[in-house]
Design a protein around this nucleic acid. Structure first.
Length: 981
RNA sequence: GGCCUGGUGGUGAAACCGGUAUACACGUCAGACUUAAAAUCUGAUGGCUGAAUAAGCCGUGUGGGUUCGAAUCCCACCCAGGCCACCA
């Protein structure tokens, strides 16, 4: 044995992984031609946000799982596009920058380098020609442009909204930065109901700020309906459904009696308060009405002598921090307005109260109190000594008895309706529809659905994000001039687009009614006077370099203090105006990145040489349009309304070819926000004629959570796993396989150090067996024999063939269903069987070359390739006697060699024959009374008679049957059960 | 409080449509190789009773139910993790 061979035969993951990273990258192996791919397959994974020192092993877990799927699809003949980028704009990255006390822009450069280095080391088949970073001006130019499009379409508006404020950090916090207070000791549970700052644990306060919102509520019904058509993890669909939270109910108007004399306005000349309820069948039990403190009618309704108290209450609830609420517990508070609402059913007067347990955003912001049958109403009634009536009888004891005296809790369940005039004897919830019909028929109320979904708050009082591209001009505002009114055509076009948005199916829907209603009741009838979007020619609004970039107290972000940024001439009148200084939510960046990959890539021209020529034609989209109205002029009347007329960030042909995304994989923690926002934006794009599909992701799968030592990874627990360490020690292939082996991918797994050694051994064994077969057999020879004498059934089906087909079957099906752990286990079993074919696993002894065929070895490498791409590529070359180095294979690197000629990752995926995957011999289980007593080796397809005959011959079986009578249950090829009588 | 996951050996976990529970891996024990150790390879490994590689019983969070047969289906409950929460 010469020394060269020895050196060559040591598995050195570090060396071969570096080598193939370089060759793959230089040969642009995984950069498909977006323009001409015939079988496009968009394999997308949620891009990471660089918020810490480097890639988290949880990221690697997620990405590897997605990559394995994409790699199989590629070998199955698809043109797979698997892009990666960084979601590096936004609060996560900024928080990390604060922590390390470095300017986010500088930190982004450092993170970018580090993340991409790590991402490449993981061995994923990324298209490195088309990476994107959300903080690149090239990218956020279009994020801003998208904002202006939504503004022009009437889908962006301003309103006052409470934000979370940390008095200690003196900064505005996003919802996700407000967490439950952590316990002092480990044994305690976290206290719920107390929002604290995630960094300093200080209870947060609420502050009112005027901010930008997107009208996602307008799309609530479509977002709900769309779920039926898409192939997503069921749990994610349920989460979205719950988040949208559609509930059927009824709106009932109550006439206000005894209000202040001035307040007799409203439509019918009378003042009404409108309440929404999902349980109108309890309405005979209504004894009071409660308005939210922010309800617009509160002061109107309040009698003069109660004004002081009510005003005081409103003010107090506005200033209420979460800590105040804690000290008060959940005890109800409130103030009486002095007015009464007339209960249409009973004719009784119900006092109208104000209380902060009623939310202004939900329903109509007013609640009719039914203390007998609602927990909160009950608490409220007890506190303020309001009457409690029972109108639902609790079955079965209470069917006929009505007793409210000893009532110490509200009964919220169903039962017979009592004490309710014409409804007596009806049942709830069965007769709910009947009740609503009755109320509608009498004109007392109107069916209406209500939603949990709120409009999307876009504004962030932060530095590290895309400045919201809007300008506010006080001069224009004072004259009542807005963007909509300033352009002669704008208003009508605005109306046109609104009409379009609603007319197309939406106008008839109840959602349209809802949003119209909320316009009136909420304060979303906003005054757009003075607001102008920045024109496309002036985009991007660059994020200025700011020395003092850290968030500070108060209502404004750091940009508000940069005079050179704020000052701008009004685009309408030229007067001194100011820019919007908030930046947009990071979820806006990530809501269109799947389009961004396809879009921004073709602005670069460093594609594989054979692709370059095709690229030129796609540069034409740059034609200038000097039209403020842009899209509005090009509503989808024609087939290609935008063709050549409007600069949009993506190529229509390319997007049509590749979208929607074929497979999207990511964490379940994004079940609602990211995935819902992305769906929303996609629908808007479609409505604006920018794209042609309604749903962005045809198929989505949520992976599970990777924990470490049974607990979620966190610094405080000291169980964080850094992928770098493991890649260095074992190689990326081993880590990839081990991560996938930890448990079922869609359910998560537990990473334990001890286990990885086993995976390392497995790959070493693969390495050894491939090298033994390759070296001792002689490559040419083996290749020929593989081609000339393919495995196939001769007279008897060899066992080796069965296990190969079984393995192919299992691995193929397991990858398809993302059960990677069992796929790897199948490969381990097969490897063990292959090793048995060698005289001895020890390579010093000879190998029986007759027994392991080249077909088996090749098939094995192909099946393993998605999991362990580096080692399989290396072994593939060795088996085909190629000494592949970066320098020696210029043909491949220069793209002269076809990818499927040399790379294992472009080889056709092995096919299995279901017949061959079954053994001829089966083990038939013999049971007596359902208990296993023996097993029987039999030929597949054995008849019941034969089986019974053989089974009865068994002593073990006889011992249990004896002379007793029995009947039998026979499940073919599985079970024979003797049931004794 | 609501919703979603899950609960199987010493450990991570398998088990298709209800059909041999514990595949695969870790760990442990024993053996081979070695002067020795490491590495590697081979074998054993749910619990109890048993000398046993005989036989039997018990066993998938708990208690019931359906069934010839239940980790799997149904009902009630307990526990853990995640998300949301005064949503009428």
């Amino acid at each position: 044995m010469d020394m060269g061979n020895i050196v060559q035969n040591i598995y050195n993951p570090y060396k071969i992984e570096r080598k193939w990273q370089s060759i793959w990258r230089k040969s642009k192996l995984f950069s498909p031609d977006l323009n001409s791919a015939s079988k496009p397959f968009y394999n997308l994974m949620m891009f990471p946000y660089p918020s810490a020192e480097g890639l988290h092993v949880g990221n690697m877990y997620a990405f590897t799982g997605s990559d394995i799927y994409g790699r199989m699809k590629r070998m199955q003949g698809k043109d797979v596009f698997e892009p990666i980028g960084l979601d590096g704009f936004g609060i996560h990255s900024e928080n990390y920058a604060i922590k390390v006390n470095r300017n986010p822009k500088e930190q982004a450069k450092i993170s970018q380098k580090n993340f991409y280095r790590q991402l490449e080391a993981t061995g994923n088949a990324y298209d490195w020609e088309r990476t994107l970073q959300t903080y690149d001006p090239d990218y956020y130019k279009w994020t801003q442009w998208i904002f202006t499009q939504l503004f022009k379409a009437g889908l962006a508006y301003r309103k006052k909204s409470p934000v979370n404020f940390c008095p200690s950090c003196k900064t505005v916090l996003a919802d996700e930065q407000v967490v439950n207070r952590q316990p002092e000791t480990r044994n305690q549970k976290p206290e719920t109901n107390i929002g604290v700052c995630e960094r300093c644990q200080t209870p947060v306060e609420k502050r009112e700020l005027e901010q930008w919102f997107f009208k996602i509520t307008k799309y609530a019904d479509r977002l709900l309906k769309g779920l039926e058509k898409i192939d997503w993890s069921e749990r994610v669909k349920i989460a979205q459904k719950n988040w949208i939270g559609k509930k059927e109910g009824i709106e009932i108007g109550y006439e206000v009696a005894g209000g202040p004399p001035k307040a007799r306005l409203a439509k019918g000349g009378r003042l009404q308060v409108v309440c929404w309820t999902s349980r109108p069948e309890t309405n005979f039990g209504a004894t009071f009405v409660v308005l939210a403190p922010e309800h617009p009618q509160v002061l109107e309704i309040t009698k003069p002598e109660h004004k002081k108290e009510v005003e005081k209450y409103i003010k107090a609830s506005q200033n209420k921090s979460n800590e105040d609420r804690l000290t008060e517990g959940r005890e109800k508070t409130g103030a009486f307005t002095g007015s009464y609402a007339l209960n249409n059913l009973t004719g009784e007067k119900m006092p109208i109260w104000v209380s902060d347990f009623v939310l202004v955003e939900f329903g109509t912001g007013a609640v009719v109190g039914v203390p007998g049958h609602d927990r909160r109403d009950f608490e409220f009634a007890k506190k303020f000594k309001l009457p409690i009536k029972q109108v639902i009888a609790k079955p079965p004891q209470g069917w006929n008895s009505i007793d409210t005296s000893g009532l110490n809790a509200a009964y919220e369940g169903g039962g017979k309706i009592v004490n309710s005039g014409p409804w007596n004897g009806w049942r709830t919830p069965q007769d709910l529809g009947k009740v609503i019909d009755w109320l509608e028929a009498k004109g007392m109320g109107k069916r209406k659905a209500t939603y949990h979904l709120r409009d999307w708050l876009i504004s962030r009082q932060r530095y590290w994000g895309p400045p919201i591209p809007m300008v506010y001009c006080q001069t224009c505002a004072s004259k009542g001039i807005s963007w909509f009114s300033s352009n002669k055509r704008a208003e009508s076009h605005h109306r046109e687009i609104s009409n379009f948005l609603f007319d197309s199916k939406l106008a008839q829907s109840e959602q349209y009614q809802i949003s119209n209603k909320s316009k009136k009741i909420g304060n979303s009838e906003w005054n757009s006077a003075g607001w102008f979007p920045v024109g496309k020619e002036d985009l991007p609004v660059l994020l200025p370099d700011v020395k003092d970039w850290k968030p500070r107290g108060g209502a404004r972000g750091p940009l508000a203090h940069v005079e050179s940024f704020v000052k701008v001439a009004c685009p309408k009148c030229g007067a001194a105006a100011r820019r919007e200084t908030d930046v947009s939510d990071t979820f806006l960046d990530s809501a269109w990145y799947f389009l961004g990959y396809l879009a921004l890539g073709h602005q670069k021209s460093n594609l594989r040489p054979e692709l370059r020529s095709r690229e030129v034609k796609n540069q034409k989209y740059n034609s200038k349009v000097k039209n403020e109205l842009e899209i509005i002029n090009y509503l989808p009347k024609a087939d290609h309304p935008l063709e050549g007329k409007l600069e949009i960030p993506w190529d229509r042909e390319v997007t049509r070819r590749w979208l929607p995304v074929d497979m999207y994989i990511g964490g379940a923690e994004h079940s609602v926000l990211h995935l819902l926002y992305t769906r929303f934006l996609t629908m808007v794009f479609k409505d604006l004629g920018l794209t042609r599909f309604e749903e962005p992701f045809t198929k989505f799968r949520a992976h599970g959570l990777l924990v470490s030592k049974g607990a979620k990874m966190s610094k405080s627990k000291g169980n964080i796993v850094n992928p770098d360490d493991y890649i260095e020690k074992y190689g990326a292939d081993t880590l990839r396989c081990y991560l996938m082996f930890c448990g079922r991918y869609q359910q998560g797994g537990d990473f334990r150090d001890e286990g990885i050694e086993g995976m390392s051994r497995f790959l070493k064994r693969v390495w050894r067996i491939a090298n033994i077969v390759g070296r001792l057999s002689g490559h040419q020879e083996i290749r020929l024999s593989g081609n000339k004498k393919p495995d196939g059934p001769t007279t008897r089906q060899p066992e080796s063939l069965t296990i190969m087909h079984q393995t192919i079957k299992q691995v193929t099906e397991d990858i398809e269903s993302l059960d990677y752990n069992t796929a790897i286990s199948a490969l381990m079993i097969w490897l063990r069987a292959l090793e048995k074919k060698t005289v001895d696993g020890n390579e010093n002894k000879s190998v029986n070359r007759e027994l392991i065929t080249i077909n088996e070895l090749e098939t094995f490498l192909k099946l393993l390739a998605p999991f362990a791409p580096f080692i399989c590529e290396e072994l593939w070359q060795r088996v085909h006697s190629r000494q592949f180095t970066v320098n020696s294979h210029k043909e491949a690197v220069n793209g002269q060699l076809k990818t499927n000629d040399w790379s294992v990752h472009f080889q056709p995926w092995p096919k299995f024959d279901s017949k061959l995957a079954k053994t001829e011999e089966i083990q038939l289980v013999i049971q007596v009374n359902g208990k296993v007593r023996d097993t029987l080796s039999a030929i597949r397809g054995i008849s019941q008679n034969e089986a019974e005959k053989s089974a009865l011959a068994s002593e073990k079986v006889q011992a249990h049957i004896g002379n007793k009578k029995y009947k039998t249950i026979f499940v073919k090829d599985k079970i024979l059960n003797f049931v004794l009588k």
